[in-house]
Design a protein around this nucleic acid. Sequence first.
DNA 1: GCGCTTGCAAATCTCGAAATTTTGTGCTGT
DNA 2: ACAGCACAAAATTTCGAGATTTGCAAGCGC
Lengths: 233, 233
Amino acid sequence: MNDRTIPSPPEPTTLVEAAYQRLRDDIVEGILAPGEKLRVEHLKDRYGVGAGTLREALLRLVSDALVLVQGQRGFRVAPMSLTDFEDITRTRVLLETEALRQSIQAGGEEWEAKLVSAFHLLSRAEDRLDQDHAVVAEWELRNRLFHESLIQACPSRWLLHFQAILYRQSERYRRLSVFRRPIPRDVHAEHQALFEAALRRDADAAAAVLREHILRTLEAVRHMPRDFFTLRP
Amino acid sequence: MNDRTIPSPPEPTTLVEAAYQRLRDDIVEGILAPGEKLRVEHLKDRYGVGAGTLREALLRLVSDALVLVQGQRGFRVAPMSLTDFEDITRTRVLLETEALRQSIQAGGEEWEAKLVSAFHLLSRAEDRLDQDHAVVAEWELRNRLFHESLIQACPSRWLLHFQAILYRQSERYRRLSVFRRPIPRDVHAEHQALFEAALRRDADAAAAVLREHILRTLEAVRHMPRDFFTLRP
DNA sequence: GCGCTTGCAAATCTCGAAATTTTGTGCTGT
DNA sequence: ACAGCACAAAATTTCGAGATTTGCAAGCGC
C-alpha cells in the first residue's frame, strides 16, 4: 500500500515479489483462468520457486482479491462475473469520483504537469489501438497511469488503496472487452473530456465524466456473451 | 473476504489461521505496538509455530493493513496517527453510509430481526461499561456485530470488504479512547438513534446519524495526548 | 569528529522433506 | 442405482536447516 505516491513498478527484491508480479499479470491477462485451482505443487515449477515461496506470493495476491485462499484446500483464482463487475464498477464510481474531487482540490501545478504527460502518452497509445492489436498491454499501462495521475493528489491513502484494488479487478474485465467493441464507444474522447474537466478544475464535471466513463465499460461488458468470464483468452 | 454473510469467527483449520487471529488481536489491542518490528525469529516462539508459518500469518495481516511488509527487512506493525485516523474515518463515512443506505433498501424482516438482536446485546454490554472495565472486549465485539448487522443486507461485497478493513483499523483507536472519555459523549444514545432510524427505514436519517457517530469518535481521539499512538496499553 | 570500510551477529528468505489432509477410485451392501 | 467405506494417490501444510541479506559496532584514515 503506497503512502501517497504513484508506484513505479519496483524491481523485485525477493523471489516472492517476482513470483507475485508474474502471477498477478497471468491472472489479470486470463492466462490463469477465473475460478482455476492454483496447485502449488504444479505452479512452483512454472514460476521457478519452492512451494513455500509460491504460497507467500499467492497470499500477497489475496490482498488484491485476485486469489481466494481456503484452509486445507489451497488457492484459487478469484472468479469473474457480471454481477461482480457491476459491484466493482459501482464501488469504483463511489470511491474514484471522491478521490478525483479531492485530487482536483489538492493538486498543484506538479499534479497538472503529470496529468498532461499521462494524457499525452495515453493519446499516443490510443492512436495505435486501431492499427495494432499487439499494443493492448501498453495501452492498459498508460490507461492505468492516466487514471492514477487524475487522483494522484488525493490526500487519502485509503481511497487510493481501495481504488487501486478495484482498478486491478476491473482490468481483468477491460482487457477482454477493449477490442470487441460490443457497443459504440469513443474511449479516447471520453478520456479527453475527463482530462479537460480535470485540468480546468471543474470537479463536478470531472466526476460526472468519470462516472459515465467507468459505467460505459460496464455497459460494454454487459453485452459480452455469457461464457465470457470463464474462457481463456 | 466474505461473500455476503457476516462471519462468525471460524475455528481455525490451520496453524496459519490460528496465528493470524492471535496476531490480529494482539495488534488491535496494542500488545504489539504501532510501528513495532515483528521479528519472525522471536515471535515464532511466542505463537508456537515455525518461521514459515508465522510469515504466512503476517502476510495475511498485510491484507488487513495491520502489518507492513518490506522485502529483506521483514514485517512491522502498521503505525497509528491522528492523520491516518482522520483518513480512516472519512473514508469509512463515505463507504459505510453508502453501505447502510443499500442495506436499508435491500434488507427484509430477517435483517431487522438480526439488527434488533444485535442492538439488544450491545445495549446490555453498554449497561456494564460503567461498572466493569474488564468488559471492553465484549463491548467491542458487540459493537462490531451491531455495525455489521446494520449493513448486513448491503448487496455489495466490495463495500462490505472495505468497510471491514476500515472497521478493524478504527478498532485500534477506539479501544484506546472508549474509557478515557476525552469529550462528553453518550455512545449508547448514539447507537439507539442509529438503530431507530435504520429500523424505521429512514436511510437519510440513518446515514446522518452514522456519520455523526463515526466522526464523534474521531473528535474523541483528537483530544487524546500526542504520544497516544505509540504507548502500549 | 566524521565518514568509510570491515567483520560478525542477528535476522530474513528459501527450499525440500516429512507430516497431514483431501480427493478420487474401486468395492460392497442395500 | 445409490450410499458408505477403505485405500491409495495427490495435494496441502509445516518445519527447520542452509543460504543470503541486513544492521551494528569497531577500527582506520582524513
